[in-house]
Amino acid sequence: MEWVLLVLILLAVVVGYGWYVVLIRNRNRAQEALSSVDVHLRKRHDLVPNVLALARRFMEHEKELLESVTALRSKAQAPYDKGDPEQVKGHLDAERGLQGALRQLFAVSESYPELRSAETMLEAQKTYREVESNIAAARRFYNSAVTRLNTAVQIFPGSVIAGMAGVRPMPFFELEDESMRQPVNAADHI
């Protein structure tokens, strides 16, 4: 009887340790993915001053929009703790806001023919598309890593071990807004 108990305890320890290893590995993976997202987001941040400097010359009536882009950039650049899911969520929300504002800025710039045809603006739009494509790829990597982490954290006995080890689920990096998830109606664009 004692032997059975001992084997069961040993088994529980082995499983517990294995799960702990998986949790820590997945958390590190998610943080590594978050760092790679940040690398590409930084490129987006670096793009903003050039676009704003150019936009200010032509878009005098869009002062509010330009100021909001500046404010959102500052907010997105604020330092945060990668280990704190709340702070990570705040950081990703700020980035979503900046992305939305930049999209709006480029959309509005279409109404300014001089700005639209300015070579620097064309160059900036091209770079913006490349940066966004890299961010999308990094976002997929991050979300994949977060899915693994959250699954390991939420399934029993992961929830217990994660609680003891201080590993918490991390937020997903969602798309900018709900409208981007909707299916596109081709008829609207023809």
């Binding site: 993915a33 890299n134 999308a136 990094a138």
Partner: peptide, 17 residues
């Protein structure tokens, strides 16, 4: 896709790009 193919890469972001 994962059932049909196995993807190996030395950069996870590049693979998804």
């Amino acid at each position: 896709f994962n059932e049909t193919f196995t993807v190996y890469a030395n950069d996870q972001v590049e693979a998804r790009r």
